[in-house]
Amino acid sequence: MTTLTSYLVLSVILFLFGVFGLMERRNLVGLLISVELMLNAASINFMAFNHFMFPGTVTGQIMTLFVIGLAAAEATLFLAIVFAVYRHYRSVNVERVDHLRG
């Protein structure tokens, strides 16, 4: 069961969930959640390749660790931006934030 292909397909499906959510959600926090999904899917990819294609090495796992760390930093900043956006637009609807129109 635990084959490379199954892991890869799983990570693709998860990634697609993330894409769908990114396109469809209106709330900024909803967007964040979708983005986290995508990052997570990438991590699965790294781990799978590390185990199935390059056994004995450790690079994929290191990558995953870094992804986790970066995701944390990114979530922090995202949430700070949510604050700033709310202050200016009185809304966290991503469709309202369109001042760069034109």
Binding site: L22, V94, V97, D98, L100, R101, G102
Partner: peptide, 10 residues
């Protein structure tokens, strides 16, 4: 250029 981020990303 609608200014809507989701469109750009899409």
């Amino acid at each position: 250029m609608t200014g809507e981020v989701q469109q750009y990303v899409g």
